[in-house]
Amino acid sequence: MKKKVLIVGGVAGGASAAARLRRVDEHAEIILFEKGDYISYANCGLPYYIGNVIKEREQLFVQTPKRLRARFQIDVRTGHEVLKIDRKQKTVAVKEIASGKIYQETYDTLLLSPGAVPLQPKIPGLSGPNVFTLRNVDDTDRIMSYLRDYKPQNAIVIGAGFIGLEIAENLVEAGLNVSLVEMASRILPKNLDYEMAAPLHCHLRARGINLYLNT
């Protein structure tokens, strides 16, 4: 009897797991649920699309639902949100977002890869129309639309982790005056000590980025 595997969440974790599962079990029924429209894209490439280093939006997409279905015989259901898990009955409640229809799907094995949400500091004003997070393709589209429609001159990036550094660099490439704010004493505080980060501080300032540490 073939195994039925449900995967909640696409993009890097879910889509990669689905492809790997197919390679180790060619008979399994694999269903992948993704709330959004995209299942596999280059997360780290998003800032470089904003900075026009990546020229075409389609270059962001590693895999499409159509190609994943055709190559691996995986039932890919984008626009579907898993609402509830019944571990005793081994079922999940799924909402088809376009229609609002809710249905049950059984499973033998359930793999959760729902991703995360950006951490936003509790600062007044973060709900404004010119405040963005950068996590997925939809976030990228909103930022690109704002840059195109309003042509801002200045940008503040909060957080000097990997994505913060990449978006700061690419906003400079897009012609903005960029300030990068980090509450720690150095950039990449989880990855570098101060001695290793110090030359990068000089590099960022040489690129024209206003760097604010301990802030």
Rank of each mutant, 00 (worst) to 15 (best):
A15R: 12
A15L: 07
A17P: 02
A19V: 10
R20E: 12
L21V: 04
L21F: 07
R22F: 13
R23Y: 01
R23M: 09
D25G: 04
D25L: 00
D25E: 00
D25V: 06
H27E: 15
I30T: 03
I31Q: 11
L32A: 13
L32Q: 07
F33N: 01
F33C: 10
G36W: 05
G36P: 09
D37M: 10
Y38D: 11
Y38K: 08
Y38W: 11
I39L: 00
I39W: 03
I39M: 09
S40T: 06
Y41L: 11
Y41F: 15
N43E: 09
N43K: 14
C44V: 03
P47L: 02
P47K: 04
Y48D: 07
Y48W: 09
G51L: 11
N52C: 07
N52E: 13
V53N: 00
I54C: 03
I54W: 12
I54Q: 10
E58R: 15
Q59A: 12
L60M: 12
L60R: 03
F61A: 03
V62E: 09
V62K: 05
Q63H: 14
P65W: 04
K66F: 06
L68Y: 14
R69S: 13
A70W: 04
R71M: 12
F72P: 02
V76S: 01
T78I: 05
T78R: 01
G79R: 01
H80P: 00
V82F: 02
L83H: 06
I85P: 08
R87W: 07
R87I: 07
R87Y: 10
R87V: 08
K88Q: 14
K90N: 03
T91R: 11
T91G: 04
V92H: 03
A93K: 12
A93M: 09
K95A: 06
K95P: 06
A98Y: 02
K101G: 01
K101F: 13
I102G: 07
